[in-house]
Design a protein around this nucleic acid. Structure first.
Lengths: 341, 341
DNA sequence: CTGAAAGCGCTTACAG
DNA sequence: CTGAAAGCGCTTACAG
């Protein structure tokens, strides 16, 4: 290790002032003379001085790092573009503001707690963005109770005090199902949901049910399937629903990955989409638009959700007390799988 | 902030020992009696004690965090599954070992330097994994010279001392082109490369050239195009090469995203793949396998590359002096776009 | 086997 | 406008 050992004392010595003044000068405090600032900054630059973050953090009890917690295993997180887009947004905003994002994924519930507590109680991060916690996850409330600023991605109706940033999943689902009904005349519409211990899956289901009821259509319990957003569960849903397909005009999937895997399964079992069965997905997964037929889906700007989550967290960290929740709109992206040309 | 203020002194007081012994007990030092350890641990658990990381890091001059630096803008990083897979591997291994990964992306060269120096000279991280730096990036050498353990993802022949972990891109490219030649009898084979200031793009190109030369085939300069791995550049390549397609049997693309975008362009301009033009991509992008026709490609296990990069970095951090480079094999994944059934 | 003391490199009252 | 001193919460020689 020949790495930088330049310390504030070195800068102070070279510029001929005390450590106090050197520190104040670098922090651009008004109490130090303009001329002194120039001298100190020149010295710092010349020596390649960078403050030792642990020392400054220990003394000031502040830290320019935040934790991004996604309580799922890493493999799951990185196979869903939903998360990846959120991460992209968070990291962009964080890096722009010289905030270091510490990423934490966890496989099991106990790991979750340990990841949370090591990072937070150990003071490595000053705040948290939590993405896709289940509605039963106790950790979010625990962190907030401990006094840490928290932003949750998605809605969080069970935790009224928590700032949330998400997209209008209920509205998005309604758009999708209304399109199937009003444009394509579908009447018998099934739904493959996400895991119903997640708010986004619940909200999409509510939107689906609402659209049916608005149109005076029946909900057929035999056309419901609870998936988990993976391709495997999309294929499993298709297999489970196959016997009912004769009594089904259309299926609304809670994400594109399940929808595309189901389309593959149907294709290999003689069910043609959209002729025999109309399909709409969710997310507008960027590369799945090359699916065959091209998938009709619902799009929300998850990158922007990430950016806004980080923005809100910065407001909380700045002491802002009235940070409001944000719900971005969703839009229908019409392609071929619904039956449009 | 009502967050944890439990300190080592509290634990020491509750268990009736000195801070020294409490610290040693929690570190499982052999010098403290087994019975004392039990008492101290119980107290720590009862109080929910987690060491203040800045204090411990400042005193011990160690830090359980590493930096993952990808010197590209965030948007670019997250649109390429290549990076995402590497990140997945790195994070999995890091989280398993209670190491906090700090992610750093940067838009411009100057940002790059500042990101590197803030994290490293500020001692936030004890080592670095660099992915996809260009061959002209000076930062990698600078970090290594400063004494930080560094692992570079990919080959790095210009920096002989640096530990690298990657896949055999030259071999992978050769596999692809040899398949086009020996199985499909292609003779006039073009290449759309990645940016040639990146070693992976250079290596793939070398493999392509080698395969042609091994088969005694000519390299036609009019069938060469330098892309940048984006879909836009794939479409641009297709547009540029369109006039030559009559004199071309096959194209080898340096990644799937360019290949699939090119296939779309060709399809909309009346060139059918694989009948009129055979195409092979690279990466085995998970969702692009739904392309039409399904893409033949070359696959390397980039998640494993990430895992191994983190493993090697941990060895370096542990003081291991003879950590060897690793090059994982690549394999051809035969689907339809090459002309196989 | 254990404890009192020093000190990591900063920032920030406090005093001038 | 500036400086000497205290202290953040740990870990680790040093001494017993």
């Amino acid at each position: 290790m020949t790495a930088s050992r330049t310390t504030l004392a070195d800068v102070a010595r070279l510029s001929g002032v005390s450590k106090t003044s050197a520190s104040m000068a670098l922090a651009d405090s008004p109490r130090v003379a303009a001329e002194t600032k120039v001298r100190v900054r020149a010295a710092a630059r010349q020596l390649g001085y960078v403050p030792h973050f642990a020392a400054s953090s220990l003394r000031s009890q502040r830290v320019d790092a935040i934790a991004v917690v996604v309580p799922h295993d890493t493999q799951h997180v990185f196979s869903h573009p939903f998360f990846i887009d959120i991460l992209e947004g968070v990291l962009t905003k964080a890096n722009e503001n010289d905030i270091s994002p510490i990423l934490s994924t966890a496989r099991t519930a106990s790991d979750e707690s340990s990841a949370y507590s090591r990072i937070l109680r150990g003071r490595m991060a000053s705040g948290v963005i939590v993405a896709a916690a289940s509605t039963t996850d106790q950790n979010v409330a625990a962190i907030a109770d401990a006094g840490y600023p928290v932003v949750v991605v998605g809605r969080s109706p069970k935790l009224p005090g928590i700032v949330t940033v998400g997209v209008d999943d209920q509205g998005g689902a309604q758009l999708a199902v209304e399109h199937l009904i009003s444009v394509h005349g579908a009447k018998r519409i099934g739904h493959v949901s996400g895991p119903l211990n997640h708010q986004s899956a619940i909200d999409k289901r509510v939107g689906y049910v609402q659209a049916l009821s608005d149109a005076g259509l029946e909900l057929n319990p035999r056309l419901q399937y609870e998936g988990d957003y993976t391709e495997e569960s999309g294929a499993a849903a298709a297999r489970a629903l196959l016997p009912e397909i004769g009594n089904c005009d259309a299926l609304f999937f809670a994400n594109d990955q399940m929808a595309v895997a189901a389309m593959e399964f149907f294709a290999s079992h003689g069910v043609t989409v959209p002729d025999q069965l109309r399909i709409v997905g969710y997310d507008d997964h960027p590369t799945l638009r090359y699916s065959h037929p091209a998938i009709t889906t619902v799009r929300g700007d998850m990158v922007e959700v990430g950016v806004q989550s980080m923005t809100k967290l910065m407001q909380l960290l700045a002491g802002d007390t009235d940070v409001e929740n944000l719900e971005l709109p969703t839009e229908l992206v019409v392609r071929e799988s619904c039956g449009c040309p």
